[in-house]
Amino acid sequence: MIDGKDIVIRTGAGAQSFDLLLRVVRRRWPAMVVEDAVSGKVFRDYTELPFSAIEEILIYRDQPAVVKWQRLGACDELRGTMIHALVSGNELTVVVDGDPPAEVVDLVDSIRHAVRGDIFNIVISLRDAA
């Protein structure tokens, strides 16, 4: 069995967090498979993802990883093949293995950097329009 580690990232990105997170992950896992952790619905294509309707996702490295996770559950052989993420309020929580491989550590660093960007954390004030 492998343990999980929660990494909580404060961000104003809200629902946009998943889009950004998946754009990071797909650069390393181009065959990633995304599962809505609540409904169990699986998405193999980025364009199918209904970002407004999902709050918790599982991102598998590829389809063989999906099959192995379903068969074996959390075990050492599957270390670094799945990332769990959820959005709530001003937080993005990324759950990875307790002792994640370097590739996953790098992915999380990139995700943290991205969702902390100015665009998500600066509020622009609109004047009353005419």
Binding site: L20, R23, D106
Partner: peptide, 26 residues
């Protein structure tokens, strides 16, 4: 340009995604 996602992948520069600005009316 102000809408683009700014990333670093392995410390290398990446622009990706197009995002909404947070607007607040006052």
């Amino acid at each position: 340009l102000r809408h683009l996602g700014i990333l670093k992948i392995d410390d290398k520069p990446v622009l990706d995604g197009f995002y909404a600005l947070s607007l607040q009316k006052h």
